[in-house]
Amino acid sequence: MKIAVVGVGVAGGYLLSRLKKDHDVVGFERMTEENHDSICAWGTSANEMRGLCAKSGINFDDFIIHHGKDMHIDMNNNERFDIKLKGLVTFDKIGLIKKMAEGVKIHYGVVPKLEELEKEFDLIVDCTGFHRSYLPKIKKDFFLPTYQYKIQYDGKVPIDDFFVKPFSGMTGYFWYFPLNENMAHIGAGDYKKNHIVETDKFFEKYGGKVTKTVGRPIRLATPNMCEPFYHGKVVGVGESIGTVYPLLGEGIIPSMICADIFVRNMHDLPKYREEVLQYFAIYGKVLNFIRAKMNGNFSAIRSIVDLISIFRYMKKNEQRFGMEIHMRDLMKVAKA
């Protein structure tokens, strides 16, 4: 088949790597090549990424920047605790995407019209993330604005490992992800739009030189809210159909898993839809939990069944999340 993959982020790059051997694949990316970057703080679980990248003949370890040991959590109520990490790393995301796309023609700085793509390609894969450029508009979307700096410090980074500060009511969180001995990503996403203020507070406290600024909304609407997944020649993969884990705002691994589901079912799109809804069903429960917190009507008693389901899902998938999962930590977040 002749396939256009529009949006060369992690989902699009991974798809190019999976499809290029058997199909005539072309990539399109709205950013110019020199400005190609990501709002994502480049954090992921090496355990899961090794297996996913191996399907494309890529050694993920070649792209790891920092191996995490502990994630420092500041609950904004004078309670602080650490979560033991089990494979959480920061990695060279853009370098990995370029490796994935090797040998494929990429048109940078271009977002072609749908009519033009339909004339030339058998299939158009919408990996444009939040923009969802070629699929019908979502009726009830839900997203957070986000903002991030890449900081270079004169000496060593101010915090030795991952640091996260959830905002009151779970409206979002501030993140600090070390990249190497003197560089880090700092940023935040917040439903109440205090993300820039919180990022700048940290920057003013610890200083450093801003080398890159990026910002865009991140979709937290889950797949059950993001239909249709396909329309005409267009099929969505990744964040365009809601594959971001709402509790963490993490979409790298989920989007790659979604791409795997697509590759298995690209000739049977109803089956693709079915598998996506089944695999990501837990995401809807997670989002309901978060929205109840945001709206101020959360009750641990009323939500205990969903909380147990979320805990069991994350506990079962500790290696995938790259951290130890304990009910006590989830309850701290739920009660804050």
Rank of each mutant, 00 (worst) to 15 (best):
K93P: 01
V104G: 01
E102D: 15
Y108M: 09
G87R: 10
K139A: 11
Y149M: 08
I94S: 03
E115M: 12
E102A: 11
L85M: 15
I138K: 07
R132F: 03
K137C: 06
L135P: 04
F143W: 07
Y149I: 07
K137M: 09
K137W: 03
H107V: 09
K113H: 14
D82R: 14
K105N: 13
I94D: 04
V125D: 00
P136A: 11
K98Y: 02
D122M: 12
N76T: 11
P136M: 11
L96Y: 02
Q148R: 15
C127I: 02
E79C: 09
H131V: 12
Y134S: 06
F142M: 07
C127E: 00
I94Y: 00
V111D: 11
P145A: 02
L88V: 11
K99T: 11
K99Q: 10
V125Q: 04
E115R: 15
V110P: 00
F143S: 10
Y147V: 05
M100R: 00
L96H: 01
Y108Q: 06
E115N: 15
R80L: 14
I97F: 00
Y108N: 06
T146S: 06
S133A: 14
P136W: 12
K119C: 13
G87K: 10
I106S: 02
G87L: 12
L135W: 00
F130S: 01
V104K: 01
G87Y: 10
H131K: 13
I138V: 14
L88N: 09
Y134F: 10
L96F: 08
F142K: 04
D122Y: 06
L85A: 12
E120G: 07
P145V: 04
P112W: 09
K137S: 11
F121A: 04
G103S: 08
P136V: 13
L117P: 01
Q148L: 07
E102C: 08
I138Q: 03
K99I: 04
M75A: 14
I97C: 01
D122T: 11
L123P: 08
K150E: 14
V111C: 14
K86W: 05
V110A: 07
R80K: 15
K113Y: 12
K93Q: 06
K140N: 14
K137V: 12
